[in-house]
Computed example of a mutant assay.
Amino acid sequence: MSSDVEELGEGHSPAAWTAVIVALVGIAIGTVAFVLDVQWLVWAAAGLTLVGFILGWALARAGYGVNGSRTQHKEH
């Protein structure tokens, strides 16, 4: 059965993976810092999480997003 609907790829791209991994590292560091009551590190981790999302956006704009010009397309 063939469909004319274009598959979006569900975010499987270098840009998405980079954004999620950097953000998760920031959240993990921030959680530990919050429990240990290290306020400056909580804010630094929040900044790292934000940097992760900005990095993902920038990589997507540079062609590393879903269906980007610099990504390899997989045939299913």
Rank of each mutant, 00 (worst) to 15 (best):
V25K: 04
V20D: 04
V66A: 14
G47K: 10
V32Y: 08
L55S: 00
I27Y: 03
D4A: 13
F34Q: 11
S3P: 07
W57N: 08
H73M: 12
G9V: 07
S13E: 00
A62R: 09
G56W: 02
A33E: 14
P14R: 04
H76C: 08
W17R: 05
L8Q: 12
I54Y: 06
Q39W: 12
A33S: 14
K74T: 14
S2E: 10
T18N: 02
L55T: 01
V42W: 11
I54P: 04
V38F: 13
E7I: 12
A45P: 06
I29N: 01
W40Y: 12
I29E: 05
W17I: 12
L55Q: 01
A62N: 09
V5H: 11
T18V: 06
G26D: 04
D37Q: 13
S2H: 07
V51W: 05
L36N: 06
W40S: 13
W43L: 08
A44E: 02
Q72H: 09
L41V: 11
V35P: 01
Q39N: 10
S69H: 11
Q39T: 14
G52N: 00
Q39H: 08
K74E: 15
E7H: 14
A58I: 11
A44M: 04
T71E: 06
I29T: 09
G56L: 03
L59E: 11
A16C: 09
V5S: 07
W57R: 09
L8I: 08
W17H: 01
V5G: 02
L50C: 05
A33L: 14
H76G: 14
G9I: 02
V42T: 15
G26Y: 05
L55R: 01
L50Q: 06
E10K: 07
V66E: 12
A45R: 01
E10P: 04
V38C: 08
V5M: 10
H73G: 15
A44C: 05
L41N: 07
V66T: 10
A44N: 06
V22E: 06
T18E: 05
V42P: 14
Q72P: 01
S13V: 00
A16R: 02
V22T: 08
I27H: 00
Q39Y: 12
G47A: 08
S3K: 15
L41K: 06
V35Q: 02
I54C: 07
T31K: 03
V32A: 09
V38Y: 09
E75L: 13
A60D: 14
S69W: 05
P14D: 00
F53W: 10
A33K: 11
D4I: 13
R61N: 15
G47T: 10
I54D: 03
V35K: 00
A45K: 02
D4S: 15
E10M: 11
F53S: 07
F53R: 00
A15K: 04
V51C: 02
T31A: 09
A15S: 12
A16L: 05
A46Q: 06
G63K: 01
L8R: 11
D37E: 14
W57S: 08
G56V: 02
V32L: 05
V51I: 09
W43Q: 09
P14F: 04
L55C: 06
P14C: 06
V25I: 15
I21E: 00
S13M: 03
G11F: 03
A23F: 07
V22S: 06
E7R: 10
G26A: 03
I27S: 04
V32C: 04
